[in-house]
Simulated assay, not measured.
Amino acid sequence: MNNTLDPTRSDRSSALRTAVSKVPEITLGFWIIKIAATTLGETGGDWVTMSLNLGYVIGTLIFAVVFIALVAAQVRAGRFHPYLYWATIVGTTTLGTTIADFADRSVGLGYPGGVALVATLLLVSLGTWYKAEGTVSFRSIVKPRVEWFYWCTILFSQTLGTALGDWLAGSDRGGMGLGYETGALVFAAGLAIVAALYFWTKVSRTALFWAAFILTRPLGATLGDFLDKPLAQGGLNLSRLYASIALVAFVLVCVRLIPQRPAAPGAAA
């Protein structure tokens, strides 16, 4: 129906266009920082749960508190704050790492079971968001309820990415045993396909965004595992703490140097 014949819809569209977005525009720089942040989530999560011997339950509880606090701060913020946004992204990656590891290892679902469970939760989150708002576009993140939908969906996508990365790379718990280097190449190829679809087709930009967001997580997870896993398991056996500190520094430098601007509000195809 034409918006001029539907005042309610016209008012909603006008409000969306004039609203202030608190998420960044999607650029190449966004994806560079995203991959680094997800790699940090893997090394940081493993440092807390494994290196500090706190276990997956305690680690998950710690990161859940951090995640909720960061999302609450993000929702309360009156405008886009790059450092707060990326801190919240890192919060989702570390929590996603510990949740996936808890499901795969402590609960005993194995990698295929963990992937199936988290994929279901992600679809439920997207479906609930779409039913409530009529869109799952990142350009619609302009009011508190939508922000909570966005961040819960981000969390499940990060968790799914971790589970997918472990499933392809791992040789135990039902894993495919491809190793970390091969796993990273597989997900990089998937991202290349998504990029090709973006530049040369009219496939939904919203669908491509979520596909890329999910795929960058296992790419970061496999890179993180490659950095800190033992040599016998195909990793470099680097200190998780030092790797995490280096990644924090890299993310901060990228956020400082790469232009950060809020996404233009509006519906995306």
Score class of each variant (00 low, 15 high):
A212K: 02
G41L: 00
G134P: 08
I26A: 05
I33A: 03
L28Y: 10
A249V: 15
G113W: 06
F250G: 03
Q260F: 12
A267P: 00
P259R: 15
M1R: 14
V118G: 01
L52N: 09
I193R: 03
V23P: 05
K229L: 05
M50Y: 04
P265R: 14
V65E: 02
I68S: 12
R145K: 15
R256L: 07
T93Y: 02
L122R: 05
V203G: 00
A207D: 07
Y242L: 12
R205S: 08
I33C: 02
G78S: 10
A69W: 12
T201Q: 09
G235Y: 10
L123C: 13
T39S: 10
V115H: 12
R261M: 10
G165I: 09
A100N: 10
T206F: 02
L164E: 11
Y85L: 08
G134S: 11
W148N: 05
G44W: 07
L215N: 09
A243H: 06
Y150D: 06
L121H: 13
W86P: 02
I154F: 04
L126A: 11
T4H: 10
V57Y: 07
S239M: 08
E42R: 01
Y150V: 05
S171V: 01
Y111N: 12
V255I: 14
D172C: 00
F250W: 11
W167C: 10
V48T: 10
T92S: 14
I89P: 00
R12C: 01
G41F: 01
T43D: 07
G127L: 07
A189W: 04
A119Y: 06
V118L: 12
Y150H: 14
L61W: 11
A72H: 14
A195R: 08
A232C: 01
